[in-house]
């Protein structure tokens, strides 16, 4: 009984995945692309940097990078606390 329920659920899941895969858009053609177009057209003029990825990481979305730096700092804090006896 349990196995048959599992088999039916698996069939539904696989069918759902196949249908969803056929409904996917092509790679590089998102539905909403205003933001991407804005970055590509204006990033060089607004920030003066040639690497658009870096302009997004360090300028447009600097908060995200601040969070990443904080994560690394917290990791160092945690490791230093964990190995505090050994590091003496």
């Amino acid at each position: 009984m349990k196995k048959s329920i599992f088999a039916i659920a698996l069939v539904f899941f696989v069918a759902f995945m196949i249908v969803a895969a056929f409904g996917m858009r092509l790679f590089g053609e998102p539905i909403i692309s205003e933001m991407d177009d804005y970055y590509i057209q204006n990033a060089q003029a607004e920030t003066g940097a040639n690497n658009v990825v870096t302009t997004i990481v360090f300028d447009y979305r600097g908060f995200d990078t601040l969070g990443e730096a904080t994560v690394l700092f917290t990791a160092v804090l945690g490791i230093t606390a964990l190995f505090r006896e050994a590091a003496k």
Binding site: T47, G48, A49, N50, T54, T55, F58, D59, G62, T65, A69
Partner: peptide, 13 residues
């Protein structure tokens, strides 16, 4: 010599 604060933030990070 371009990029404004981006190179400085790169160096800091």
């Amino acid at each position: 010599n371009t990029g404004g604060t981006i190179p400085i933030m790169n160096i800091a990070v």
